[in-house]
Design a protein around this nucleic acid. Structure first.
Length: 510
DNA sequence: CGTTTAATATGTATATATTAAACGGTGCCATACT
């Protein structure tokens, strides 16, 4: 009763959505919660309501700066002023100001990297933290082992902040990933809220194609025929641009590309235009998607397939959030199989480079007594390590206790440690190759793709959809654009003029 | 595998052609409190 009142008072909603109330009650009763909720299912309510009831501060860990800014703005819109994002968008003065008045805040958003900063943690220790939220918690499992190791270190932050209740939220997780999250955060007394990941309104199609030319033609005909808006996923920046350009050259309007190599401003603009229906098609790498709250995406086409089935689930899951019929098409040709292997190989340092790095470290240690992380990173670059490789090695050294006060200890140079690191690299590679193999096996499935797919997530088909998968049979015409020459709407003269001059596009009004 | 970049070959040298090697995808941070 009290919870509903608060919900209405703060958010204007009359009733909770599925799962929200149970999550809130578990948190209030002192449990940790790991929950999978569909996107747009009101994740923020799950921590904001308990936040208002509990007397201390709420920390929200978020993977992307733009997500943080978004959430801060949304809170401000409902009148909450005691909120701040603590990240590199802020100047040093602004950050100091926030920390000086830390008592005045209710919600602080931060990246996992920020939560490793002693400067930040010390200030947080002055106040009571009552809730620690990890948003998009699958990142712990997806990124934490090598790409962003600070995701694996969140449990240290939780402990330092006096073990507040932890809420881990995600929209896409297998049971294995949920377990990874629990293990990594070191949670006990945890309530699991798991919902089926089956999305019966998304038809799944895999299409074998012989040549690259043919694949481009298939893509073009899909983009021309399917009802939009749609997303095209590629595995390289190059192809995301090339496909967008190719489609435009063929007369497709409202196409843009998106990848991590673009300027932040441009990325935000394109994302916004897509959400506001000013763009019809986005050709992109995996950089696009997280935090995209768009309900009416009608198709997702994979021009290249991702290296694991979890990413595939995430990517096709961006279609049909409104529950309406949508389709996921994967275009597969023999030449596609080498790319994910190469990408995986690049993710971790090979033995030769590790050995070279340690030999350089040894040499350097003869000249001075200690090696700071900054020096070691520099040495790493000289040894041909990528930034990501260096961070992986650093994380392993930290775990092995071979570092102290931001410096590498002499003990790190033992051949034993080098061996352990090489073993860890092999572990991770094997793990990634296994996931890739699972993805490939699924591509070869001869039985219902949805069933095979759900099995990998320990899940089951709820009921047989009319359009299930290419093996059960899909009527693609169901997803084609309705020809509406007759019903072309007529707007008032101002709008028609804008349409004529290309200032607006017709689908802005549909 | 396809594409880009770097290295080599040519040979009055310059600038282009040819060949070999490298690369490919996700993002945060960098401060300095008492």
């Amino acid at each position: 009763m009290k919870l509903e009142n608060l919900l209405y008072e703060k958010f204007g909603y009359a009733a909770f959505r599925a799962g929200q109330k149970e999550i809130i009650q578990d948190l209030l009763s002192g449990k940790n919660v790991v929950a999978m909720l569909p996107t747009g299912g009101g994740k923020s309510v799950c921590y904001q309501i308990p936040g208002y009831i509990m007397d201390g501060l709420v920390i929200v860990v978020s993977p992307l700066l733009s997500l943080m800014e978004d959430q801060v703005n949304q809170l401000r819109l409902i009148g909450e002023k005691r909120v701040a994002a603590f990240n590199s968008f802020r100047t040093m003065e602004e950050k100091k100001e926030v920390l000086r008045n830390i008592e005045a805040y209710k919600f602080i958003f931060a990246s996992p990297e920020m939560l490793q900063s002693p400067f930040f943690l010390q200030a947080l220790k002055r106040v009571k933290v009552s809730l620690f939220v990890v948003d998009e918690a699958h990142c712990i499992s997806q990124w934490g082992f090598d790409f962003r190791p600070d995701y694996q270190k969140l449990q240290h932050a939780v402990r330092q902040l006096g073990n507040p209740a932890v809420l881990a939220l995600t929209a896409t997780a297998t049971k294995k990933i949920l377990q990874d999250i629990i293990d990594s955060l070191g949670l006990s007394d945890t309530a699991l809220h798991f919902h089926s990941i089956d999305r019966p309104n998304i038809a799944i199609q895999v299409e074998g194609i012989d040549t690259l030319e043919e694949k481009k033609m298939r893509l073009l005909s899909y983009v021309k025929e399917l009802q939009g808006p749609g997303i095209i996923y590629c595995s390289s920046r190059f192809w995301s641009e090339a496909l967008a350009e190719g489609l435009r050259a063929e007369g497709v309007e409202g196409v843009s590309h998106y990848h991590g190599g673009m300027e932040q401003e441009e990325r935000m603009l394109i994302q916004q235009q897509f959400i506001n229906n000013q763009l019809r098609v986005i050709s992109c790498t995996s950089a696009f998607g997280m935090g995209i709250n768009k309900s009416n995406v009608r198709y997702v086409i994979h021009f290249h397939y991702p290296a694991n089935i979890e990413s595939y689930l995430q990517e096709i899951g961006r279609a049909g959030r409104d529950g309406k019929d949508s389709i996921a098409v994967l275009l597969l040709s023999g030449a596609d199989h080498d790319l994910p292997v190469s990408i995986i190989q690049d993710e971790l340092p090979d033995q030769k480079r590790v050995a070279y790095f340690f030999s350089l470290l040894k040499k350097s240690l003869l000249q001075r007594d200690t090696i700071s992380f900054a020096d070691a990173e520099y040495i790493g670059i000289a040894a041909g390590l990528h930034e990501q490789h260096w961070r992986f090695i650093r994380y392993q050294l930290e775990e092995l206790g071979a570092v102290q006060d931001g410096c590498i200890l002499v003990s790190a140079l033992s051949s034993e440690i080098q061996q352990i690191i090489n073993d860890k690299v092999l572990d991770r590679l094997n793990n990634k190759y296994e996931k890739l193999q699972a993805m490939r096996n699924w591509l070869q499935t001869l039985t219902c793709r949805r069933e095979a797919f759900l099995r990998l997530f320990h899940d089951k088909k709820q009921k047989q959809p009319k359009n299930c998968c290419d093996i059960c049979g899909i009527d693609v015409t169901d997803y084609k654009q309705i020809q509406k020459e007759k019903s072309m709407p007529v707007y008032e003269w101002k709008t028609e003029l804008q349409l004529l001059l290309g200032m607006k596009r017709r689908w802005d009004y549909e």
